[in-house]
Design a protein around this nucleic acid. Structure first.
Length: 228
DNA sequence: ATAGGGATTCTC
DNA sequence: AGAATCCCTATT
């Protein structure tokens, strides 16, 4: 399949993100993360996401309230929230919540689309892995797209340097053809079974670029709306 | 000031 | 199974 055309004007608008993160997370599946560098474009299709809520969500960074680190989660929807985990890996989130709330969607895995060789080079020793695995994980995708904390609070709606592109409807439907499933979020057992057990991890079923397999319940197609 | 630990990944 | 490695958060 030919790589979908990508233009800054395709950047998802503020209204796309101004909804509860649990609604935005599945809608992001099949859309594109676009990284515009000096003279190159690196693009990946989102195949796995996780929704994180506000202070009530015991699995969310926002549980600490408004602090220096979590501030972006309480800020304008459509901006990036990039944090460092385990002292060495960056993770990319898009801020999403309805007015007066807090929340974000963690981008957990991409299918490489454009700029694959650049992604591979950035993976260093691990670049020998199969193409489908180059961005199969929240830290891996940041490495491949050269996304670090300098992008924290970056406005994703501008279509500059880093944004989410909404592909043509046919392309979007095609990407989602295998179906969308939902299951528990990864690595949040500390939150207690109530919060850790919620099916807020979303993925395109059986996709080869998932960070890890997801056995989950199919999401009713009715809940998937055209972002535009 | 200091201790505890993490929305991960790679290697042994 | 264990290390790498830094910064955030809560506590003293």
């Amino acid at each position: 399949m030919r790589p979908p055309a990508v233009r800054p004007s395709d950047a998802a608008p503020h209204s796309f993100y101004a909804r509860p993160s649990v609604q935005v997370a599945p809608d992001l599946l099949g859309t594109l993360v676009v990284r515009e560098e000096a003279d190159r474009l690196v693009v990946g299709r989102i195949v796995e996401t996780e929704a994180y809520g506000g202070p009530d969500d015991r699995a969310s960074h926002a549980r600490a309230g408004r602090t220096g680190r979590t501030e972006p989660m309480f800020g304008p929807p459509g901006h990036a929230y990039v944090y460092l985990v385990y002292g060495m890996h960056s993770c990319l989130n898009v801020v999403a919540h309805d007015d007066g709330n807090a929340g974000a969607v963690l981008i957990r895995a991409l299918e490489p689309v454009t700029g694959v060789e650049l992604m591979r080079a950035r993976r260093g020793r691990a670049g020998a892995e199969p193409q489908a695995r180059l961005a199969a994980g929240p830290a891996r995708l940041c490495q491949g797209l050269a996304v670090d904390r300098t992008f924290d609070r970056h406005d994703l709606t501008l279509g500059v340097r880093l944004w989410i592109a909404l592909p043509q409807d046919a392309d979007l439907q095609d990407a989602r053809r295998p179906g969308i499933i939902a299951g528990p979020r990864v690595g949040v057992d500390y939150a207690g079974s109530d919060w850790a057990g919620r099916p807020w991890r979303f993925a395109i079923r059986d996709h080869r670029s998932l960070s890890r397999p997801l056995r989950g319940e199919p999401l009713p197609i009715a809940t998937i709306e055209d972002p535009r």
